[in-house]
Every structure is written in C-alpha cells, then in structure tokens.
Design a protein around this nucleic acid. Structure first.
Length: 564
RNA sequence: GGCGGCGUAGCUCAGCCGGUUAGAGCAUCGGAAUCAUAAUCCGAGUGUCCGGGGUUCGAGUCCCUGCGCCGCUACCA
C-alpha cells in the first residue's frame, strides 16, 4: 500500500470558484484520489484558500470590512462549490488561520538561519493616499521606449518591452489615480541561485514528469535562477518573525504552499490525532503530488522544493507535479476581470455537478489548452452520457424486467462472442486503470465510454428481442453480458462520475462501496431493481440560455469600461 | 527583444522512438433494426497534416525558415 498526499493549488480567496479552477487543479486531483482509494492506497487530499495579498486587502478597503472577512467569505463559498461538484477534499483550510502563521514563520526563520535569505534595500513607487507600495500591475504611465500611454509597471502593451516601473514617464497609481512617489524600502530575498545544483540533482530523476512541466523548469534553470523577494510591505499577511519589522509580511507565494502543510495539520487535529500529519509530510516514502495550473509551475518545482530542503523537519519533496494547461471558454481566453468565465455557483443553479465533471474530464487541458463550449457540453451529455451509456442501461434493464422479472443469471456456457465481449471490456478496464494512474483522464473517460459502445453493438448483434421468442436462454445471455459490462462501467467510471455510477449500481443492486478488485469478481446473478433514467438530456433552450447569460455579463462589463 | 509551446477532416481533439492507402467522437449522407431515453447498429465521404525549403529509401512526425496564435520573462497571485 502506498502513502500518497495529493494537493490542489490553493485558490486565491478574492473571488468565487470558476470552471478554470476545476479543470486546472481540482477535478483531475479528485479523480486521481478516487482512483487511488479504489485500488486501496492510503491517500489524503488537501487544499484550501490563499487568503493574503494586495487584491484581497484592496477589496476589503473598498467594502469597508476587514480583509479576513473577505477571505472567509470566499473560503466558504469555494468550499461549498467544490462540494456541489462532489470534489471531496479531506481538508479545506485557509492561510489566514493561526496554525498557518506559526509554521510559515518557522519556514522563514529556518531559511534565514541556514543562510539562504538576504536582506536588501531598494526603491519602489509608493501611493501616498492609500499608504502602500505599489506592485507593478497597479502602476500605469507612459512607456519610456515608445512613449505610448497606458503602459503598465511591468510591460508596455504597445511595444512589448519590459519596463522597470521607476522609469515610467508620468506614473500614476491605478488605485488612487495619483502620482506615486519613490520611496526606499527593505526586503528579504530568497537566494535561489544557491539552490541551483541541488535542484538540478533532484530534478535529474524526475524524467517521468510531464513535458510541459519539464520545459518550464529547464527554461528557468538555463536562464539562471535569480534572487527573489519573499516579503512585502502590507498589513494583510504573515508578519515576518524579526524585531522592528512592523508592516513587513511574507509574500503570498512564499507562504501559500506552506498552506498544504498547515491544512494537513488541521486535518490531523480534527481527527483527534494531531501528529498524524507527520506520517505523510515527514515520511520519505510518501508520494507528494501537487495538482495545479501551468501558471503555478515554477513555484512548485523550483521555489517550494528549495524552501523544503532547508527546514529543520525532514520534509518530503514533491514526487510529481502534474500541471494542467488552461481551459478556454467558447474559444476565448477565460478572464475573471472581464467576467468571461462560468462560475460554479451559477452553473449549479442550472445543472447537475456530475455533468460538468464528465465534460471537463473528457476535454481536460492535460497536454495543451482546451476549449469549453456550451454546445459541446450539450452534445457530450446527450450523445455520450445519455444515448450511449444511459440508453444501454435502460434498454438492458427494461428488457430484463419485461421478460425475466428483473432476474438474470449467468449461463453455464458463454458463446464465443459473449466471452470475447467480456474479455475486451476487461482489457479496456486495465487500460483505464493505467490511464488514471498517469493522470490521463481524457483517455480514461474515452475508454470507459468505449465499453458502453461495445455493449450497444453486442446488444444489436445478438438481437435478444428476436431471440427471446425462440429461446429465452439466448436472450438472457445477452442481458447477462450487458449487465456485466454495466457493472464494470460502474467501477471504472466512478472516479469521474461517482454519483451517476452509484445510481447505476443501485439499479443492479450492487453494494455502494466498491474496489477496483471487484472488476475480477464475475457476478453470477443480477437482480434489477427499480429502473430510472441515469442522466437527463439537455434541451437546446437550456444551452441558449447559458450563452445569453454569458453574453449579458460581458455586455455589462463592457458598458462599465466604456463609462470609465 | 529572449525562452518555450501550439497550428492535423465542418467542429472538438488523438497520432509514442520518422515506416505500408493519416485516425476517433460529433456533425453530414445512405442503409439495417425496432428491446430502449427517436435511443442503437452498419456503411460512405471529406483532409495541399499552416506556407516554403532541407535531411532521409521514406516526414504530420526530425532540422532550418516564414506566417499566425498563445504562454513565460522572476513585483499577478
């Protein structure tokens, strides 16, 4: 039995959960975890929200509330939306909880004492009205190179050149609209260059990592690692544990991954075994697997391992970082600021969470960006879940009830065709297991649907509706094989659509608790209980409605932009 | 600017280390069947594999180049 610790990237607590988060790091993790549980591994699934940082603090100011209120609000909202999608984390914490502060400070102290943190003084732009230093994204001005207006503090959109915010002509704070002043400040830097050799050595054996992840890492390494600031001037964050450093907090990317540990500690405490977290984090045999979107790759493959290496506790380092690419929406890049996304909360008002799980699994951005379209959503639900899988169950069970009172037994001898059909399904089931293990959710989903396709083909070819008039036995054999296929499907599809498969198993009177090993245990007798539709079709109207809603929110947004 | 990625049927995508007539699903067309959620099954077709050049007996696959899109570029989180 393997010990596996799975995490999903902490979600930033300044907004609700949207389908990009789900496709990027939650659904794939949940499916992986469910599979690992099926094959009997000891796996826990940890996550939470990233509660600190400027955007949350600004939002709090806007609303006139404490930043903690904002963070807690979205922590709750995200947790609820995840539940709505049946994404089952063992613990969902937040980085503003007390436990997290202590351990983050320890991380800082240990790195400092080990000589991997340096202190530097630098000049930054400062907004006097809002009394805060400005990150590059909050500064606008005239580009010093092409003189065009509207250049950001980090880059000019017009000429594409990188800019040092201090060189902007006529800089303006995006928060207050006023001209910022240049002010000196002190920050602590993580000395990444010092980790280079150790990192290279460690990464050498990670040949099994996904290509997109490896490419990213080596582009950083080959460019040469640079020191990176790990503190900021802000009230809302983990205070740094040094004398006379009021107003200095850890920069969010530094303390965010530590949230995986503090969340695990919270989980252990809630279980009444406060030291249980050590069984995972301090165990060299634990497979630590971080699921995340590609934007998070450098943090988890370069910075986070570096941080872990120099702690007093012998933390386990990431075993794998299966990063996903991005999900686009209707052919366009998703954008929360332009409201071009689908919020899970809104989705759940109209549709079942299972359906989204299915579609996002079948079209996950595993190796490159993929696209979510509502029409495709409808097509996948109707054609695949309903017509192929749902109808196979329906036609088999209804037939069984009409002609056999719902009771189906395995014939003493199976025809060659029946045997081949079952063998093929078992072979596919093996491939599916391998696919889940390699984070290939799209492939797993396609293969599982293939079993249903095989079932329909077999049903047609053996013509039980015709045979039943001559020999009930021959018809029964078909129903037996199809039910057995559905039993297999109910196992192999359960990581992706757990509720639907539970419903399917209930119709066949199979136990709700399943194990991957059940695949080999051929069922001799089936008793079909009450038959109902597995899934419901989606009408054109429902999709049109979603497209209208999408357009409407965007129009509102554009109007706001037009009116400044 | 630098680094990296992508561009394959109407649509969404698969094509591992280069190897016979380039694939799947959906959509389209024709047929079969009628147990079933008008659900299924069989058959058919379609592609200058972004353009151009090169390596090779042989390239969607490797190399160079052009075009287009995208990401990263370390103070977005």
């Amino acid at each position: 039995m393997e010990k596996i610790l799975v995490t999903s990237a902490l979600t930033y607590a300044n907004g609700k959960l949207h389908i990009g988060h789900v496709a990027g790091s939650y659904l794939n993790a949940d499916i992986f975890v469910r599979y690992q549980k099926l094959i009997g591994n000891d796996v826990i699934y940890i996550g939470g929200t990233d509660d600190y940082g400027t955007p949350i603090s600004l939002k709090a100011e806007e609303e006139g509330v404490a930043p903690r209120i904002i963070a807690e609000r979205y922590n709750k909202s995200i947790k609820k939306d995840l539940q709505g999608l049946n994404i089952q984390l063992d613990n969902f914490s937040g980085t503003s909880r007390p436990r997290h502060i202590k351990i983050s400070q320890d991380f800082f102290t240990n790195l400092l004492e080990a000589g991997y943190v340096t202190k530097k003084t630098l000049k930054q732009l400062y907004d006097k009205k809002y009394k805060r230093f400005l990150a590059d994204r909050y500064i606008e001005g005239i580009c010093p190179y092409c003189k065009s207006d509207g250049a950001r503090g980090d880059q000019c959109d017009n000429c594409g050149k990188l800019i040092d915010a201090i060189n902007l002509i006529e800089p303006k704070s995006k928060i207050s609209g006023e001209t910022p002043i240049i002010k000196e400040t002190t920050h602590w830097y993580l000395n990444l260059p010092k980790f280079e050799n150790e990192l290279r050595e460690w990464l050498k054996i990670k040949t099994y990592w996904k290509d997109n992840v490896r490419n990213f890492i080596f582009s950083w390494l080959n460019e040469g690692l640079k020191e990176r600031a790990i503190t900021r001037d802000l009230d809302w964050g983990v205070p740094i544990p040094l004398e006379n450093t009021k107003g200095k907090v850890l920069y969010v990317w530094f303390d965010a991954p530590i949230g995986y540990i503090s969340s695990t500690q919270e989980w252990a405490e809630n279980k009444g075994q406060p030291d249980l977290w050590k069984d995972y984090w301090l165990n060299p045999n634990t497979k630590l697997i971080h699921f995340l979107g590609k934007d998070n790759i450098p943090f988890h493959t370069i910075i986070w391992p570096s941080m872990l290496m120099k702690q007093k506790y012998p933390y386990v380092l990431p075993y794998d970082v299966p990063a996903n690419e991005f999900l686009n929406l209707e052919g366009q890049k998703m954008s929360t600021s332009h409201n071009w996304t689908v919020w899970v909360e809104d989705y759940l008002k109209y549709f079942n969470g299972e359906l989204l799980r299915y579609v996002l699994a079948a079209n996950a951005p595993e190796t490159k960006d993929s696209d979510f379209c509502w029409k495709d959503f409808q097509a996948k639900i109707n054609n695949e879940l309903n017509n192929i899988l749902g109808n196979l169950a329906n036609r088999t069970f209804i037939f069984a009830q009409k002609c056999f009172n719902g009771k189906i037994s395995k014939p003493e001898v199976l025809s060659e065709q029946s045997q081949q059909t079952l063998n093929e399904a078992c072979k596919i089931a093996d491939y599916i297991g391998g696919s889940y293990n390699n984070y290939q959710v799209r492939k797993a989903s396609r293969l599982a649907m293939d079993i249903a396709r095989i079932g329909n083909k077999y049903f047609d070819e053996t013509q039980p509706w015709f045979e039943v008039k001559k020999s009930k036995k021959i018809a029964e054999e078909t129903l037996y094989v199809c039910t057995e296929l559905l039993r297999i499907i109910s196992i192999v599809y359960s990581p992706i659509i757990p509720k639907g498969m539970k419903k399917l198993r209930k119709m066949i009177n199979l136990p709700g608790k399943i194990s991957w090993k059940d695949l080999d245990k051929k069922q001799i007798k089936f008793e079909i209980s009450e038959v109902s539709q597995l899934f419901k079709k989606i009408e054109d109207k429902e999709i049109e409605k979603q497209l209208e809603l999408l357009k409407a929110t965007q129009t509102v947004e554009e109007k706001i932009m037009e009116h400044g």
